[in-house]
């Protein structure tokens, strides 16, 4: 299986604070990969480095076979991100937001029309396509934010805490959409919701204090510490780090 991401000793420091500490990870193409951890674990910093938003202090990273340091401009065309905060242009309509971001990435017109149709259909945004995005509810805005990441046709998409601040129904709706995306794109998802990674992710990396403590699917992680639930396994793994 091809590798979407390969990290070797990736590190990020801010002054004397080490936010991400020599992490090694591999993400295979086509999977939903979850970065799980409490606040301050280093999940968002890792994503920021892999999307060119932050420069690594040390280590190597390959995205779709391209070197993060030397090929960042090429990588940016293959990757997109939906940030923690909903990042949309409030006075533009849903469709205008999508056309805008496609224009920034230079998506060809014929591809754009097909992708718009696909996104309106799969994310059910068609019914609100003429609505100003600032008038949408939080759940719909988050859906648009993800759609804006998809319209550019990325091979790899980062969803940084995509369900943060959403109510239970909106979260479940979003899960359904993320599952739909699986066949189309490799997804790296950060969250601190255990049920979310269990429901969505093929592989989970547990992070704490900038370290990757364990990697595997939900069953493997539970088995590794002889626990029946992912929550107990997570507490055991992260608690072990605290000791």
């Amino acid at each position: 299986m091809n590798k979407a991401i390969e990290l070797k000793g990736l590190t990020k420091t801010f002054g004397s604070k080490t936010a991400v500490d020599h992490i090694d990870l591999t993400v295979n193409e086509g999977e939903i990969f979850g970065l799980l951890g409490v606040n301050g674990a280093g999940k968002t910093t890792t994503i920021r480095m892999l999307t060119g938003l932050s420069v690594p202090t040390e280590g190597e990273a390959k995205i779709m076979g391209l070197d993060l340091k030397n090929d960042i401009d090429k990588i940016k065309l293959l990757v997109n991100v939906s940030t923690q905060e909903t990042a949309i242009a409030g006075n533009l309509t849903v469709e205008e937001n999508l056309r805008f971001i496609a224009g920034i990435y230079g998506v060809e017109k014929k591809d754009l029309e097909a992708r718009l149709e696909d996104i309106f259909d799969s994310l059910e945004l068609g019914e609100v396509k003429s609505q100003r995005s600032k008038t949408l509810s939080g759940g719909w805005q988050r859906r648009l934010s993800i759609a804006m990441a998809l319209i550019t046709g990325p091979k790899l998409i980062f969803l940084d805490e995509p369900t943060l601040g959403l109510d239970v129904l909106a979260r479940r709706e979003l899960w359904r959409f993320v599952k739909k995306l699986k066949s189309k794109v490799t997804i790296v998802l950060t969250t601190h919701y255990l049920d979310e990674v269990e429901a969505l992710c093929d592989t989970i990396a547990i992070m704490a204090k900038g370290h990757v403590l364990a990697v595997g699917n939900a069953d493997e992680l539970k088995k590794s510490v002889n626990k029946d639930s992912l929550e107990d396994a997570f507490v055991e793994i992260v608690g072990g780090e605290k000791k």
Binding site: T83, E85, G106
Partner: peptide
């Protein structure tokens, strides 16, 4: 403030 620029910083702009 709205993180809109963060999205664009991650783009080829």
């Amino acid at each position: 403030t709205s993180a809109f620029l963060t999205r664009l910083y991650a783009s080829p702009m």
